[in-house]
């Protein structure tokens, strides 16, 4: 079985895997990072979104070996200790989650969305999250959260 090496949430990891192992299964089953979810088998739902080398990607569409040498960030790596990332904090503040199942993917997508478009309009947020399905919230509060999260991320970036 091939061995794969990558950096996940700042930590160097490696594992022996079957060649067909998807990145999401490597993260969940081998690394125990169960915050990344699997909601479908057709790459349609976005529950599995992580960042690979700084860009959001559906981790069910990538073989783990394709991420060889990559920097991967999962939802577990977004907060700094107990301090939530501004986007996480905005989801909490604006009730952008209910059952929480879509949430990790939604937040990871939203962070990437704001990185590419620091001041997205409501329509741009709705279009930007088109690849993430939420069955609970009706998206109303997710949109609000992403708007607020974008503001907070920008403020943080200015400070930083």
């Amino acid at each position: 079985m091939p061995t794969v090496r990558m950096t996940v949430n700042g930590r160097a990891v490696s594992g022996e895997i079957e060649a067909r192992t998807l990145l999401v299964h490597f993260l969940r089953n081998q690394l125990g990072l169960t915050g990344t979810h699997v909601g479908c088998d057709t790459s349609q739902c976005g529950a599995c979104v992580v960042h690979v080398d700084g860009t959001s990607i559906k981790s069910c569409t990538l073989l783990a070996i394709q991420a060889e040498g990559a920097e991967v960030t999962t939802i577990e790596g977004l907060a700094t200790g107990d301090e939530l990332h501004p986007m996480q904090a905005a989801f909490r503040e604006h009730h952008g989650l209910q059952c929480g199942f879509c949430t990790p993917g939604m937040v990871m997508s939203a962070v990437d969305l704001v990185k590419t478009n620091p001041d997205p309009s409501e329509q741009q947020i709705r279009e930007g999250l088109e690849g993430n399905i939420c069955r609970c919230t009706g998206y109303h509060n997710i949109v609000k959260a992403v708007k607020a999260g974008a503001k907070a991320m920008n403020a943080g970036a200015m400070k930083g």
Binding site: R28, G35, R92, H95
Partner: peptide, 19 residues
Amino acid sequence: VKRREDFRFLTGRGTYTDD
């Protein structure tokens, strides 16, 4: 009141059956 369950869901620490 802001939800108490959110912290674990937002940080990937929920425990769903498949976890």
